[in-house]
Amino acid sequence: MKPTGVATLSARAQPPPTETETESDPDLWRRAAAGDQSSFTLLFERHATAVWNHAYRLTGSWATAEDVASTVFLTAWRKRAEMTLVRDSALPWLYAVAGNVVRSERRSAARFLRALRRVPDESTVDDHADAVAGRVDDDRRMREVLAAVETLPRAEREVVDLCLLGELSTSDAAAAMRVAEVSVRSRMSRARARLRTLLEETP
């Protein structure tokens, strides 16, 4: 059975569908939920870079970020019919899913952490990062930040993931976490104080 929809996710041989300014995330999400793959494709094209960057900031590894991003969009596809997108942007929810993907794997798979520690030694993987000056410094700094974030209480960690690493607004983070905005602000304030101390101590 062929999926419905005009455009579908595809390799480069098939150019991505054209996006129009008038189509909001909630509109695309609703159509995707009804089975329209082309709408989901537009959501993917719109947010793939942001999710991939966020996944890097959660893992400190561009290679792992790619796999996390893939999982996030697959999860979004599976849940599109069950979820109502209530914010203007799908990003808060996608970021929250990315955070849960990473946290879930950290808890359940020791090899995840082992692999992350080995990432700098495996830079022979032929990816874009080889061409970027300062990549090793970036990765090292990202791991320092992540190590500091790991020491935070759970609730502060989630806020840092979304607001500091993901650069979401406090209201968007509150919606994604389903807590009051004032709670996000207070958690962020405490987290900032702790991180400042921790990261200033980092040699």
């Binding site: 595809s10 793959q37 793939a48 870079t49 990816d127 874009h128 700094r141 930040v145």
Partner: peptide, 26 residues
């Protein structure tokens, strides 16, 4: 303040791999 590495543009080959992976799974 915490000197996060800058965000990057996604290289076309990464985007293609994600498209292929997602398409196959979908």
């Amino acid at each position: 303040e915490i000197q996060l590495p800058p965000r990057r543009e996604m290289p076309p080959e990464v985007r293609d791999r994600l498209r292929v992976d997602l398409r196959r799974n979908i």
